[in-house]
């Protein structure tokens, strides 16, 4: 039996939107609608989709930034080594539990407090949780800077974020995230604001850290090519739902859902001789699956741990 770092069941995040100034009825926007997945230890899941499909909302709900409106989320607890539901935790326990979940943000220019030095930024989690004495903390900071490739540490510690380049800032973000030694990290497009040449070194760093520190990522991106490089499995999100989830290569080589196909066929290929076909949306394969399994079950397994959503998406793609 595989151990998971996170198990998500039927996660929902609904927003109420008032219909306008004079209107009394309220519309409900289903930003995240009944999604389920789990991430085994040491593996990473890519959450791929267009902007507005609900992937960032999912991330924020999982990081407890915005409360979810429904569903069941269980995290792995580093101390008890069990899966734990944290819905009913008291404040102090919740604060303690937050060590297990961390997030890396998209914009390296906005995710570090511009008025703090790098040292203070990386120290903050240790200060919040009061871990170790002062000397321990400083040693930990130097150590983690070395881990993310910012050496010599003394050259970076007293600097402010705006004195560093985008790539260096993102390394600082990663250092800050990993200093708590979490097992599960949510990454919200951490490389999309970086230049191509720097992107790969950050991605490689994250992959190496995942191996060395046994971290699992939920990697959110709109770029399937990046997700392919980073993740063992990919979940494609559309309209607040996961429409297809499978092993990375299985998903890319054998996509079933029309939206997945559409997404894959939209990605430019860095090869002028490759003739990319424009995908004409058709629902035949999906219809066949619905006909076989019915629509009672929201996700059906078609073998190889390849799941397809049976939700009706006709006319939406």
């Amino acid at each position: 039996m595989k151990k998971n770092v996170i198990e998500v069941k039927n996660l929902e995040k609904y927003y109420e939107v008032s219909g306008g100034f004079f209107s009394r009825n309220k519309d409900i926007v289903k930003a995240v609608d009944d999604i389920s997945f789990e991430i085994p230890f040491g593996e990473s899941l890519g959450l791929v989709g267009q902007s507005g499909c609900g992937k960032t909302t999912t991330a924020r709900a999982l990081c407890l930034l915005d409360p979810k409106t429904g569903g069941d989320v269980k995290f792995y607890n580093n101390e008890t080594e069990n899966m734990q539901n944290i819905d009913n935790l008291e404040d102090e326990e919740l604060k303690k539990f937050r060590r297990n979940i961390q997030m890396i943000f998209q914009d390296p220019y906005e995710s570090l407090n511009p008025r703090w030095t790098i040292k203070d930024i990386i120290l903050e989690p240790l200060n919040i949780h009061n871990i170790g004495d002062l000397q321990d903390r400083e040693e930990a900071v130097v150590e983690i800077l070395k881990t993310v490739g910012l050496t010599p540490a003394s050259n970076y510690l007293p600097r402010y974020p705006h004195e560093l380049s985008g790539g260096q800032r993102q390394r600082v973000s990663i250092a800050r995230t990993l200093i708590m030694k979490p097992k599960f990290v949510v990454c919200d497009e951490p490389t999309s604001m970086l230049d191509v040449s720097i992107r790969i070194s950050i991605m490689d760093l994250m992959l190496n850290l995942a191996k060395d520190l046994e971290v699992s990522y939920l990697y959110i991106t709109h770029d399937l090519a990046v997700a392919r490089y980073m993740c063992n499995r990919i979940a494609v999100m559309f309209n607040g739902k996961i429409v297809e989830i499978a092993e990375t290569e299985e998903l890319l080589n054998n996509p079933i859902h029309p939206y997945t196909k559409r997404l894959i066929s939209s990605i430019p290929v860095p090869d002028p001789s490759y003739d990319r076909k424009v995908y004409d949306v058709n629902y035949d394969e999906l219809d066949a699956i619905i006909a076989k399994h019915g629509t009672d079950n929201p996700m059906v397994d078609i073998g190889n741990e390849h799941y397809i959503s049976t939700h009706d998406v006709k006319g939406l793609i």
Binding site: V196, S197, R199, I200, D223, L224, A225, V226, R228, Y229, L252, I264, I267, V269, P270, D271, Y274
Partner: peptide, 8 residues
């Protein structure tokens, strides 16, 4: 060229 990921 070698730092650009591809789906193909």
């Amino acid at each position: 060229l070698e730092s650009t990921p591809s789906v193909v």
